[in-house]
Nucleic acid binder design. Structure first.
Lengths: 228, 228
DNA sequence: AGTTAAAATGGAACAGTGTTCCATTTTCGG
DNA sequence: CCGAAAATGGAACACTGTTCCATTTTAACT
């Protein structure tokens, strides 16, 4: 690991952990999850793969760092929210949009549990859940439900986006295709999935997502405020 | 793809899609997600990697099939449940235990969205949500919230299990270590995560998980029964 | 300014992966 | 019994993350 030097570095754009992460994000955004390889990264940075390992432990470290960069940005942008519930909604939407813009974050976050990016999110949700007046011993359940819903739906959405991307069709066509498959399922065995296929076709992802958030928030309200 | 032959096949245990999937599950269970390689699989089946491709499209296909096998089994076992809520709880616990026993399913399911295993789960949840009396246009939000919570928590749990396994420590030690990290966070910046670290140390995963399910179920109850 | 140890670099090499290809063997209907 | 189709298994390909190491650049100290 390098330490900061006071004089100017070797060349105009020296190899920096931050710079490597920055280019990694560009690569991930443009070429998807499989687009980030040490070879491609090295080429863009005009160096060899070995040099990268001076600044980065391994690929998992790199992915986590890239995620953290996106999450940090998303959290900074969604600071608004006058009431705790509004703040949670804003935060949830911020994550949704961030993962929608950077689909690879969705799947990567599920492999970075307990690490920095997740802690950031947990903390923000937790503070609002506290303000909501949830008693101490119920806070974790509430935060956990919100966290996993947010990561789950955003991740699914991201997976859809990525699938659509790699198969060169837009989201509408993808949902259309999926709705078609679902609506052709055996009516005896899959009555619900069939009936809901129509909704899939026309639904607004963000709206459904927010509806789910409100559902969980309603549950937090309705839950017995325990022993106080 | 082979078609069923009436006479007995080449050797005692011929290469079958089902048999390949069966051995794949054994391999995944014993050696984790990275343990399933076409080389290892071929060795166990006493054949070459190329032969497998006659029965299986690619690795992703194989993983989805393996997941579907586990999910189908889990759903078949958790048929009990007198009330819709009890049925949902039983189903949720069934998935939790199945993913706990086969951690690789947790991460694999997030990459098999819209496919057979997921549809199976959606259908089962959906039928119970219907019985719960949720109006049509709110059913998808309810199912989606439950589905993503189930997959999210189970997946996190599985990730923890796998991490603990590969680092050769039991779950308690792992949670202990994670709680330690969290409790040493900056009190100014991470007050909630610090305070909740203690709960992490002693909590019962299954209990917290069920608490979250009940939270969402409460939200479904509390939600305005819309325009009817 | 000269010396020296540390920091940083970049390319070659390694072990491993999923997948393809194809010569060969086995199977079974006509 | 034969020939087409099904099935096999191993070699080869392109690619991956990672390690290694000779080399260059930097910064600090006489």
């Amino acid at each position: 690991m390098p330490r900061k030097s006071k004089t100017c570095p070797r060349r105009e754009e020296s190899l920096t952990r931050d710079h490597i992460i920055e280019v990694s994000i560009e690569l991930l955004d443009s070429s998807g999850e499989g687009g980030l390889t040490f070879r491609a990264l090295a080429e863009r940075l005009a160096t060899g793969p070995g040099a990268l390992y001076w600044h980065i432990d391994n690929k998992s470290d790199l992915m986590t760092a890239a995620c953290d960069s996106i999450v940090t940005r998303a959290m900074a942008e969604s600071v608004e929210g006058e009431t705790p519930k509004a703040a949670i909604r804003a935060l949830a939407l911020g994550m949704f949009d961030a993962i929608d813009a950077h689909p690879w974050v969705g799947s990567a976050l599920t492999r970075a549990l307990g690490q920095q990016p997740i802690v950031r999110i947990v903390e923000r949700i937790g503070q609002q859940v506290r303000l909501l007046g949830v008693p101490n011993d119920h806070q974790w359940a509430a935060v956990s439900a919100l966290l996993h819903y947010i990561l789950g739906v955003s991740g699914q959405n991201a997976a859809n986006t990525q699938f659509a991307r790699t198969h060169a069709l837009n989201r509408t066509d993808f949902l259309e295709a999926m709705a078609n498959v679902w609506s052709q399922l055996d009516p005896e065995e899959y009555p619900f999935s069939r009936s809901v296929a129509g909704q899939l076709r026309t639904h607004d992802d963000r709206e459904d997502y927010l509806a789910g958030i409100d559902l969980i928030l309603a549950g937090i309200d309705a839950n017995p405020s325990s022993n106080e």
